[in-house]
Design a protein around this nucleic acid. Structure first.
Lengths: 168, 168
DNA sequence: CCGAAGTTTCAAAAAATATTGAAAGTTTAA
DNA sequence: TTAAACTTTCAATATTTTTTGAAACTTCGG
């Protein structure tokens, strides 16, 4: 397979993959493009490469910056802004986990705390089932929260290395 | 908070939560409803409770069954089919992880295997960056695959219990 | 201060996704 | 075998999400 074709494949699959994870197609594609490109790119480079409009490119780059996955790079003597993606995939994963934890897991935990305090007699099976369900989601959610914190602080070697063998 | 209100909240938040995870709103809502309802429900019960059409209900129940999260229950002496959700949340999580691994992670790994074999001189920095990116995603993906396998086979106590303390 | 180069915004249009509901299909009791 | 009860399908419709691109805005050298 030629590089050009492989790049296309990678970008388009990464985009499709992203849509299963609540990330929009274009955002994932821009990220993919920046991951596999050695040097920083301008907004126009990205527009041309992916055939998308200026506005769309701008919005999604901004969103990638919000997620902490892409940064602005100012090349000396250049008027234009360049963009470049973090290339260390372990850092990328940790950053995504961190953001999603903050955006999704934490608000869900807050809601469950409230819902657990529903009024009513626990001898009523409707009340009981509700509280039991909420509590057990909360319990696992709290654990997931802790586990992800450990992961966010960890080095790649922790994940890939020998410690994990203990679980085999 | 009254039970009725709490139920509504739970269902609607679970639905919104689902959309961030590539699951459609209605599917997540039906799942939420079944999770907090002690007895199995019929399709009509679900339609009435969530105010959705017959077709939509039917499709999404079917999808939940495909995911292994809901099962048909035949009550003796009843003509109608009833539906009920697995209530053990750890089992639910494992089932979701298992399905998503099969549907998403595994196909991605296959693609990366192909893309790693791109033609070209590794001294060309475009080729090098591409291969390095693909390889490192593959490496972490393989590790994630193994880790999730361990998780799928594990008991809840593994996740919540003392073993995890080693990582703190 | 001017104007060219570059960036951002956002209302409108397009595309993708989800929902409806009536018709077709299936099952079962008598 | 019939018909009532129940389930499934799917073309049309509605909703949501994404994308476009022109206009507004910002920045900077001279």
């Amino acid at each position: 397979m030629k590089l050009t074709e492989a790049k296309q494949q990678f970008i388009s699959s990464w985009g499709a993959f992203g849509t299963h994870w609540g990330i929009n197609r274009t955002m994932a594609q821009i990220h993919a493009l920046l991951l596999i490109t050695p040097d920083p790119l301008t907004q126009d480079d990205i527009m041309d490469e992916l055939n998308i409009s200026r506005g769309n490119t701008n919005m999604n780059i901004r969103e990638l910056i919000n997620w902490g996955l892409v940064e602005r790079v100012l090349l000396t003597g250049e008027r234009k802004e360049y963009f470049s993606a973090e290339k260390d995939i372990w850092k990328v994963i940790k950053q995504i986990v961190k953001e999603r934890k903050k955006r999704e897991l934490e608000p869900m935990m807050k809601l469950l705390d409230q819902l657990e305090e529903v009024e009513g007699d626990k001898r009523d099976k409707h009340v009981k089932t509700f509280i039991d369900t909420v509590s057990s989601i909360k319990k696992l959610g709290k654990q997931a929260d802790k586990t992800l914190d450990v992961m966010i602080r960890a080095e790649e070697s922790w994940f890939v290395g020998s410690i994990m063998k203990m679980f085999k």
